[in-house]
Design a binder for these strands. Structure first.
Lengths: 344, 344
DNA sequence: GGAGAAGGGTCAGGACGCGTT
DNA sequence: GAACGCGTCCTGACCCTTCTC
């Protein structure tokens, strides 16, 4: 277990001062004679010297690191998001510290404290909705914050990258309405979250445009965590006039919802037309393959990274950005006209 | 954008020396009179002081951070593994920086360098198989390395946590043999990897115990990345004497294999009995639900974390550990006796 | 009984770690 | 070459007890 060489070792071995080595390490920071530069590089290579991140951070005041704060990686949506973000970040030379909140504001608060301690220069997060003061403080301390997928209304001056939630919900509802369905169930996230309420509003707007009333008993706003999706499906189908179509707009609950439908032996689309949010690879492996609203994860990730890094390098104008990327509807075989649905 | 208070600010405000504050921060490091301790804590709270990680790391020589190096998080296996590891690590107060290799040794090498720069105190990794010298060097520099899921044979002195690959493959093969199948296809990972070869050997052992020959044309060792699973399925079923049963033992390729089977409209289990490795939630949503070898992710994660942290705190005896956790077979409806399979 | 030594708890000060400027 | 960024940890000073002779 040897000791790693320091910049002073390099300087000594190359017969130059530490400043010269530092300048070689950070071009742009000052001139170095070509011969010396070569020699220094040779010694660096020979000793296998690598600058220690901690010392750099201490001196720079901030780390080339961003925090990624999501609910949990068991959710394929966040997993694939994280995958893209880690990848994009790496290509820009920044590392990602990963934290999960389990939708618990306390855990989120802890995470934020830790990220502050680490002087991260940015945070990409799916906020729980709590900790408003902490988020504000983080930003005041110079940390670039980008919310992804969800927003917090009270924090208007934070960048947000999300999909067109309103629009996506409206379009999927319209699609089902056009198939003749009038009783369309909606499972969405908590209405206190921006995604939950936006999706509900899209659903309502579609009804309004079609001059149809909205039956509030067809709407289930369920928590992101746990198995609430299954319960919601069960209770919807147990209604006296059950829906003939269902939109599962709460990404986190798609799996448990579909599992319940399979367990109940519901025939899709004959008994129930189904549209689910988020294009997980497995949605095409079910029988029938599911029609989905595909969330363009890559776009979400790329925009988020660009915002964080752009602000890090001061290349973005002041003022919060709100970026909404289009999520398109991918028809497969889980939707059918109402006539057919009633035929059995 | 105010400046965060430092330990000296706290000391000044509390009317004590810096060392006293430090000792309050790190109990066990020295005595502090109760009254002073209270006062210091009060000031810390009042100023909102938090020690900066970079300064600590610099002084300690190592960070309370571990690196997690996996192929990619799009693979639900790694995603759920990462989820558990992040969770376990957090409960021990250590952060996780995440890097992906895409199975590319160059990217892996980069990651290792970066982790070294960051003075991480441990690394949990699914190694690509390359970079043997780098891994060795990392360990020589005092970084605790734990391989998870896969091993590198040349590095005998590195801890490994994996499932009983040989045993799992043997048992699933025996199960299919007991159903009367004699032509069992095997899709497994590259034979250069420990998992790939162990699973193949288990497959062979089952045949040997049953005094049956192994037909090498039924074996497909495919790379972890890409869509090779689908191709392997296609070529197996295109054989003149196609297999009547299939084991997909390459976790990374289960999705593409199953997708291909669905696309080809293969009737499972009537035309083909199927066992796949790794219990992803969606495997029970297909028609029929798939029989799986369930990898106990939690156990893998917990053991890995315990090894890393245990060594960090010097609480483990010298010498590499090899931990194999049992993966159990979870029968669902994708396997049928051969008689039935031929009936159509 | 009283002077002086020995012991243990408490804290101030400063060197140190390693790049950057 | 030297100061700086910010914790950590070692050294030595100082105090108050307690015990010895």
């Amino acid at each position: 277990m040897r000791k790693a060489p320091t910049i002073r070792d390099v300087a000594a071995a190359a017969g130059v001062s530490v400043s010269v080595v530092s300048r070689v390490l950070n071009p742009e920071s000052g001139p170095v004679a070509p011969a010396k530069r070569q020699e220094v590089l040779r010694v660096i290579d020979e000793l296998g010297y690598r600058p220690r991140a901690a010392a750099r951070e201490l001196s720079a005041g901030h780390a080339l690191t961003i925090g990624l704060v999501v609910t949990d990686l068991s959710n394929p949506f966040f997993a694939r998001l994280a995958d893209r973000i880690v990848w994009e970040a790496r290509s820009h030379g920044v590392q990602v510290v990963l934290m999960t909140t389990q939708e618990d504001p306390h855990l989120e608060a802890d995470s934020l404290d830790t990220l502050l301690d680490r002087s991260v220069s940015g945070v990409i997060a799916t906020p729980t909705g709590g900790n408003i003061e902490k988020w504000r403080r983080l930003r005041d301390l110079g940390v670039n914050v980008v919310f992804i997928d969800r927003a917090i209304e009270e924090l208007e001056d934070v960048d947000v990258v999300s999909i067109e939630n309103f629009d996506s919900a409206q379009r999927s509802t319209e699609h089902l309405l056009s198939l003749g369905h009038t009783r369309i169930g909606l499972i969405t996230g908590p209405l206190t979250t921006s995604t939950g309420s936006a999706r509900l509003n899209g659903y309502k707007a579609a009804h309004q445009n079609a001059s149809l009333p909205v039956d509030p008993t067809l709407i289930r706003d369920v928590p992101f965590r746990g198995d609430a999706g299954g319960g919601a499906v069960g209770s919807l189908l147990a209604m006296r006039q059950p829906p003939t179509a269902l939109i599962v707009a709460n990404t986190a609950q798609v799996q448990s919802s579909v599992r319940r439908l399979v367990q109940m032996g519901i025939d899709i689309p004959d008994e129930l037309s189904l549209i689910v949010f988020d294009d997980n690879p497995w949605t095409e492996l079910t029988t029938p393959p599911l029609s989905v609203i595909r969330q363009p994860l890559d776009m979400l990730a790329v925009h988020a990274i660009e915002l964080v890094l752009g602000r890090m390098h001061g290349k973005l104008p002041d003022g919060a950005r709100r970026i909404e990327v289009k999520a398109d509807y991918l028809p497969r075989n889980s939707c059918a006209p109402l006539i057919l649905s009633n035929a059995h």
